[in-house]
């Protein structure tokens, strides 16, 4: 008799693996923020499209922003997009590894620079769009 092949047991790995542990759930939420990112970009595209349709069409569109459903969608999108921003800036220092001599620049400091940049960009965008 030749060498007998060892029989191994292959455990199933369910497609619901991401529900099993909190870090995996948070990962999946992070990945799904992209849906809201794209959704809002499509909204922006519709915004520009309405602009090409003249003042009346555009005016109705802007009025519709006041509707409860629009406000609710904006709030949900904001929550997910903020989650994207936070996870994005927290992970960036892992990729952007900077050294000063032998010492690695602390990840918190690198992330802090991105957060600071975010505040500056947000203020500039707000001042520009709101025309203040």
């Amino acid at each position: 008799m030749g060498k007998k092949e060892m029989s191994t047991y292959h455990r199933p790995f369910p497609n619901t693996w991401w529900l099993k542990r909190k870090p995996y759930v948070l990962f999946m939420i992070r990945e799904l923020t992209s849906v809201f990112v794209a959704g809002y970009c499509i909204f922006l595209l519709v915004f520009v499209y309405k602009l090409t349709q003249g003042a009346d069409v555009y005016g109705n569109f802007i009025d519709a922003l006041k509707s409860p459903s629009s406000v609710a969608l904006h709030f949900i999108a904001l929550a997910f997009v903020l989650y994207h921003t936070i996870t994005w800036f927290n992970l960036t220092p892992k990729i952007l590894v900077l050294y000063k001599g032998e010492e690695r620049i602390p990840q918190g400091l690198v992330a802090g620079m991105f957060y600071a940049g975010w505040v500056v960009v947000s203020v500039i965008v707000a001042l520009f769009v709101l025309g203040m």
Binding site: A77, L78, V81, W88, V121, L130
Partner: peptide
């Protein structure tokens, strides 16, 4: 690149069109 643009710019735009203006 898209992730960076989204992280930097989308939150403030959503606040404008979803909260400040309405």
């Amino acid at each position: 690149a898209g992730g960076m643009v989204a992280a930097m710019i989308l939150p403030v735009l959503i606040i404008i069109t979803g909260i400040l203006v309405p």
